[in-house]
Nucleic acid binder design. Sequence first.
RNA 1: CCAGUUGACCGGGUGGCCGCUCCGCACGAGGCGACUUUUGCGGGGAGGAAAGUCCGGGCUCCAUCGAAAUACGGUGCCGGCUAACGGCCGGCGGGGGCGACCCCAGGGAAAGUGCCACAGAAAGCAAACUACCCUGCUUCGGCAGGGAAAAGGUGAAAGGGUGCGGUAAGAGCGCACCGCGGACCCGGCAACGGGGACGGCACGGCAAACCCCACCGGGAGCAAGACCAAAUAGGGAUGACGCGGGGCAACCCGGCCGGUUUCGAGGCAGUCAUCCGGGUUGGUUGCAUGAGGCCCCUGGUGACAGGGUUCCCAGAUGAAUGGUCACCACGCGGGAGCGAUCCCGCCCUACAGAACCCGGCUUACAGGUCAACUGGCGUC
Length: 125
Amino acid sequence: MTAVPDKTGALRRLKKRSEFLRAARGNRAGRAAFSLQAIGTETAEPGIGFTVTKKTGNAPERNRIRRRLREAARACAGGFQPRHDYVLVGRREALSQPFGKLVGELCAAIKKIHASTGASPRDKQ
RNA sequence: CCAGUUGACCGGGUGGCCGCUCCGCACGAGGCGACUUUUGCGGGGAGGAAAGUCCGGGCUCCAUCGAAAUACGGUGCCGGCUAACGGCCGGCGGGGGCGACCCCAGGGAAAGUGCCACAGAAAGCAAACUACCCUGCUUCGGCAGGGAAAAGGUGAAAGGGUGCGGUAAGAGCGCACCGCGGACCCGGCAACGGGGACGGCACGGCAAACCCCACCGGGAGCAAGACCAAAUAGGGAUGACGCGGGGCAACCCGGCCGGUUUCGAGGCAGUCAUCCGGGUUGGUUGCAUGAGGCCCCUGGUGACAGGGUUCCCAGAUGAAUGGUCACCACGCGGGAGCGAUCCCGCCCUACAGAACCCGGCUUACAGGUCAACUGGCGUC
């Protein structure tokens, strides 16, 4: 924990369906335990949302996936860039993967998703 | 000690580090105010099934939902408990088990209609295929008439069973025992149980076939419903006037109203004026003090009821109740030791996540605890 402003409170939580649909049109980076989507937005502070579909498992398993991803996102909070929205789609491997590996893969995925399209992903009009 | 039955209960623990949500308090900031918010402290934060959404309620709205009849649906031994139930408790009857105990859609078949497949001569009212007996005839192979319902065979079921007597052969034809029906008597609130004069036996099963009887039931659901803020009409409220027929008039009749009909009471429909504003999105509320929980006393076989004391015990809404690390229990595997035990490794544990709230039912579930009881074996 080197950076001081990496507090979770700085992360805005996505809540509306339209925000999730917009993020789905952005760039993607897949990993075994999750799939990351990112898109530019007008709000300054970065937004984060979680999606775990019913196909993934029953209710306790889906809760556990979302909670582990949420904690991993908190650990990688410094990597999220301003004026962007992110959506994490959970997969079943997020239940069993060691937490350290999960954090490492998430931080790497954030870097990759920004490197692939340069500094400014496609913005909405 | 082994095997089993029933009931009740638990369903990982402790400690670091970092977080989420709600409530209360304090301080600070903003605001005229209601209030909002930063920080700190204290406290609460998934289940026995939160699940399936199968019943029953509370609550809310639907055009007022009252009465009767009918239709439809549900329930179905008796008594009790409950707000209510298709639930629970206690009995009764039937079936299973050596037993503790378990299981049962268990009202009515002389109110009526219907069905009883296949097989079989015959499937509901008595009848008679083979075989049996008697008489007559005979070409000696049988044929005709009559008797009888014991034997054979079919079936889930064939019109009481067994034995003796009886007879031409037989038959409740007679008798004994068993079974069945049963006026009446006794016990019980009742379901039902016990006895039973008498009756030679008649009255088969199916109501998870229609049906009959008794009782219960309006519909939709918190995305109910109420309010606030943003954006457009086909919407709503109030007031006034008013429609068709009859009558001089007062007045009467007329259309629609949550299965249908009738009755009762009430409402709605047209035009104009005024006022308010829908669908959708976001927010607030409903939204957590309740048929509430622990403990104790009293009554009751029990479900439960009454009284006392004490507690406040989840409220999210892309959805909080967590993430991670260490240790310890528990379990499994391996090794050492006669043994108590010790060491190492693994799983770091089942079913499963509140969504308005209660009472049940059903289904899923690794492992474990306790109590009572039953049947064996052993010891004193």
